[in-house]
Design a protein around this nucleic acid. Structure first.
Lengths: 229, 229
DNA sequence: GCCGCTTGTCACAAGCTTGTCATATAGAGA
DNA sequence: TCTCTATATGACAAGCTTGTGACAAGCGGC
């Protein structure tokens, strides 16, 4: 299994360190940030799979960041676990309202943390990362990181794989080249929009004749993945 | 699409000019300021959509201005891209802490600038999630950017799509060709009014026999979209 | 350091769209 | 019915947008 990336946001480096160690032992990739701004940048750039967010921080607070992330389309799906020293019910409510998926009060044991984190990930990644997606005989299996058409496995490059995975988990919806760049390439990469075209072509080629029609051009807009004609 | 306004703040007029040209070519509206004070006034008055801010300036520095803007509620949401001659990591951190959304080091190519600017705008402009509209089996779904009649998707060009979308969201009301031009083509475009006729025809053709009657001619005035006879 | 694979760009080819015209039709009023 | 005016249509050339093949730089493994 490809290991997940977790971004820890907390202003106290000791706490970050403690958590990081625990997560690394549990085989997660770990990123750290000590304030909301940096965190936001890292989220856009590195696209972590989960956010461990401290509730109280100088500057933009955790809640504030959570709200902002939920508002933006590209980050709205990112699961968030709030960390807080206060155990009051009020905060819990506020946190969940802000879009947090779970909530842990300090102090907590590394074991508890990892357990909750697993639970949230299990809950929030119903498809794509874990489960294989299949459509019209085209199968993408994240576990083996392989794509096959009617059992016959296909030759496909890394970028095309990511592109296909994104498409298969976001069907029936048109995306602009810019959005695809954000979602598949990651945030602050500076790439020509037309590059998307080239990868679309490579993907189409890799899929072969029988599945070409799944990747549809939406003239004047971008592309769409759809089983419908 | 209405073009976005970008405010460039830099004390060197040569740099401002260079950037302004690049942005204008990319179809942005450009404002310029050579110091933080003027910039602040322009932000309040003209409400630009994005700020390109030089980091080092005489008087109030870029960072300082950024901090100030983030503190004020009315301007906190304004996306900021910092420009700087220094490529040190320190500044990047400082900049992001001050609330910048991205960061470009001089020298940079106009293309890179425009690309980043687009990315930031895309990220910060909350994507309006419009709902699908349906009438008499005719369905227009903005998400998938598709029009279908009783499940069967229709072949339709970009302009006809926009025209239909406008009509479906503004039913039971007659519009003159001029109004349609304004609404669908966008304000400052000079096209022959008769052109609307042609697109109406194309739209009718695309809709096919069963839905023709929805697009009605209002003699002496213009057109109307209506389910009523 | 060399080799092979992946990527991002370009330049050019193809394919669609679009705004206009010229011409055919259809309405309205006399 | 006839006439005048407003619309509908079919055809087109220019302008854009997208598809392609080739290529060079970047990266990782040997």
């Amino acid at each position: 299994m490809t290991s997940k990336t977790v971004l820890i946001v907390d202003d106290e480096s000791a706490i970050r360190e403690m958590i990081a160690v625990a997560l690394e032992m549990a085989d997660y990739r770990v990123l750290e940030a000590d304030n909301a701004q940096t965190a936001h940048a890292m989220i856009v750039d590195d696209q972590p799979d989960l956010l461990l967010l401290d509730w109280m921080m100088p500057g933009t607070s955790g809640i504030e960041l959570a709200r902002r992330l939920k508002r933006e389309e590209t980050t709205a799906e990112l699961p968030i676990i709030l960390l807080t020293a206060k155990s009051e019910e009020d905060n819990k409510i506020l946190g969940l309202e802000a879009g947090a998926d779970d909530y842990i009060t300090k102090p907590f044991s590394p074991r508890e943390l990892v357990a909750r984190l697993k639970a949230v990930l299990r809950r929030t990644t119903p498809r794509g990362i874990e489960d294989a997606v299949e459509i019209e005989g085209l199968l993408l299996d994240p576990a083996s990181h392989r794509v096959s058409a009617h059992g016959q496995s296909l030759e496909i490059g890394p970028t095309e794989y990511r592109l296909l995975q994104f498409f298969m988990t976001h069907q029936e919806r048109a995306y602009t080249r810019g959005q695809l760049l954000d979602q598949v390439w990651g945030g602050n990469v500076y790439v020509e929009e037309r590059t998307v075209d080239v990868h679309i072509r490579r993907l189409r080629k890799a899929l072969g004749e029988p599945h070409q029609h799944l990747i549809q051009t939406v003239r004047g807009t971008g592309y769409r993945f759809s089983a419908r004609l």
